[in-house]
Design a binder for these strands. Structure first.
Lengths: 140, 140
DNA sequence: TATTACATGATAAATTTTATTAATTAATAC
DNA sequence: GTATTAATTAATAAAATTTATCATGTAATA
């Protein structure tokens, strides 16, 4: 029994092939896919997968803290199985989303709390620009 | 001739009552309204206002840099006539969105650029939690 | 004031997400 | 291993948000 299966069972949730496929796909990519992308990717190996199942599974995984939802400013959400609070980089050129490895920003809440009466619980940091590939294309 | 009118004219855009109403509303609120909220608010004074006009005007204002679009993780976007890069606070309880007055974070791009090959142009920082009102309600 | 090009308003269409429900399947007990 | 049952899935409809279309209206200019 792997990690994910036992977590689902502990929460009283059934372990289904669809759920495992979705969480495994998210764990094995750095691409921060949308629900639609997850659906299309899994459809080839999983002809019976339904988009509604993808949405419901993502909602469930978000609720039990196995994935985080990113709002990078498109019309749709993207998902990340790395639930650590880490900043993201978004490319204006190709819309790709990368993780930023710079842990100094991972916990700004403590600092920010000094300047507001909000009781802060989470943060999302997005940096926009051009990825190395698109940067190269621009100068040509 | 006020500020906004001259900016629009410089860009070769027509100055219409609808456009002035939308930008003025945004300039006079701290509430970060959605397109729907802007539409409903202006409808009383402006019975002929169309939701499509609100969307098209917001798109235009965004393009010429007079408003910024926020994606705080709801199903819709919110708009801010303060185009300075400043962090936002979002309340889990009442979904209100506030500005954070803490300019130390206003320009993290320079710092972050040292740790990525992206050519960075903009940043969006969101802090989530409970506003003073909702915090108070929780402890009761 | 007339002309013209752009903007508006009404509506349709597209896109993303959520809700509904019958059929299926995982988990449990036997 | 099989039957039971309760949760999950799949297909679809519906809801919500945003964009596109196009005839009409209006701002800007002469």
């Amino acid at each position: 029994m792997d990690d994910i299966s036992s977590i689902l069972k502990e929460k009283g949730l059934k372990v289904t092939p669809q759920r495992l496929a979705i969480i495994n796909m998210l764990k094995n990519t750095k691409e921060h896919p949308s629900a639609e992308t997850i659906y299309k990717t899994l459809s080839s190996d999983f002809p019976t997968m339904s988009l509604a199942t993808v949405y419901k599974t993502l909602e469930m995984l978000k609720n039990i803290g196995l994935v985080q939802e990113l709002n990078v400013g498109e019309g749709s959400f993207r998902y990340d199985a790395n639930v650590n609070s880490h900043p993201h980089l978004i490319c204006y050129g190709c819309n790709r989303v990368d993780d930023l490895d710079y842990s100094a920003l991972d916990n700004l809440i403590g600092e920010v709390s000094k300047y507001t009466d909000y009781l802060l619980k989470d943060q999302k940091l997005y940096f926009y620009g051009y990825c190395p590939d698109c940067k190269k294309k621009m100068t040509n």
